[in-house]
Amino acid sequence: MTMARRRSKLEIYLDILMLIRSGVNKPTRIMYGANLSWKPLQQILKSLVEQELIREVDARDRRDRRTTTYYVITRKGENVINYFSRARELIRMDGMVNSLILHE
């Protein structure tokens, strides 16, 4: 059995942002997708809203009139995802270049 590496807080934040951008926007769905329990997820969502990386939207269901909360990514959230995606890509490319140089 292999142990999964413990994610950093920053990685968890980015995972949640990417999930929301991909359309996984309901709290329970995000919780399953990000592999988190309810309480930590609520704290992180609150923090992301405060940082204006996501926006909380309350929508009323037409059938049973219940209010459901979902989240949408903001422009700032998009910027953060783009920045880290490119940074990851640069690190990956750098690793590939290094391994090519070592094998020469």
């Binding site: 807080k9 920053l10 990386l53 910027n79 920045y83």
Partner: peptide, 22 residues
């Protein structure tokens, strides 16, 4: 290339995460 806003927003997130750690 990464634009200024992206960099600033990323730094903002990093700072906030560090603040939460603190």
């Amino acid at each position: 290339m990464m634009n200024f806003d992206e960099k600033m927003d990323a730094i903002d997130l990093i700072i906030n995460v560090l603040r939460e750690h603190e």
